[in-house]
Amino acid sequence: MTPRGAAPWLRFSVALLLVGMFAALAWVLLGLPPRSAGLQPQVAAQMAVSGVDHPVTAVLLNFRGYDTLLEMAVLLLACLGVWSLSPAVPPTDETPGAMLAALPRQLVPLMVLMAGYLLWRGATGPGGAFQAGAVLGAAGVLLLLTGWRLPVRWQGWRLRLLLIAGVGMFVLVALAVVPASGVLLGYPLPVAGTLILLIEALAGLSIGVTLMALFLGGEPGASR
């Protein structure tokens, strides 16, 4: 076998099969009705009881809350997987140049502000926990790339608490609303908006910290 991968005849037959698959699926796509509202009318009809004004946020945190809850759990699982496979990549002793050291000091506060704005904005427009978490995560990665190191006292239970805060708050709220509504994640209307904002705030924080922790490439402070 060549080091580059499969043999030429194999590649050719795979390509042929995939062209067939592409053609069949494209035919299906072209045959779909050109105008279809999908689930948009159902979502629009229920917006009044969702507690927020933006349909995507309503779907994410209310109508399909289970999806988002389990997705937070998947994120935590991925982090556990990375930590169990190896200790964190040891930091280099290189000190960044003056420009590189100054850049994150200007950018990171702005990114934190941006994350807060996106989180708040999610109730009425595009935005929310995932966008805020992505910006926070990017800020963390930027810091790690420019020579910042996670302080040792933050590597223990503090980091773990931040990692589980999102999914933990989600589960707590899901259980806490059971006496009022009879079902998991069935937010009572008067407090739905507040509960969603509370979940989103901690979920955004957890997503950002998890993305940064994934970038560490392993468990910080662990030795092999």
Binding site: L32, R35, A37, G38, Q40, V43, A44
Partner: peptide
């Protein structure tokens, strides 16, 4: 593909 108004939020 939603005819008018916002796109389908579920996808």
């Amino acid at each position: 593909r939603a005819p008018d108004g916002p796109p389908d939020p579920v996808p």
